[in-house]
Amino acid sequence: MTINRDYLGRTFPAADPYEVSRVKIADFADAIGDPNPVFRDPAVAQAAGHADVIAPPTFAIVISMAGSARAVADPGLGVNYAMVVHGEQRFEYSRQLMAGDIVTAQATITDIRDAGRNVLLTTKTEIRTVDGEHVCTAHSTLVERGGAG
């Protein structure tokens, strides 16, 4: 099975709207062991100029994965997910996600290339509020081990 090059440049339907909650942000901050109150306490977040508690920077992956899953899980693309590892990740932020945001994520396949015996699949996922405000763009490169040839 090889990855279908015809999918290069394809944009997938946006994921269903995701509502960011204080509880989910606090759970994520707990899981990464980060005690910063700006992720938990609205008063601290407001003192730092935010409308509500903000999310740690990599919380954006929770949202962007919902969008990129639409691409990666498309059977026509032909990714063997058991052989996939994460190669690179980059976020460009207009601002941090915060409690109360309702956002969607829409993925585009921006690169498919061989690297030795592996195939590199790069997606760009735009995270926007349902009102269209840009929050973050996530660039993700997945490596399918042994996927070339």
Partner: peptide
């Protein structure tokens, strides 16, 4: 976490990227 702890609550993260 390392970056936000250093930069402080009033800073804004603009871009953040890594290779694993």
């Amino acid at each position: 976490r390392y970056v936000t702890d250093w930069a402080g609550d009033q800073a804004e993260l603009v871009e953040f990227g890594v290779r694993f």
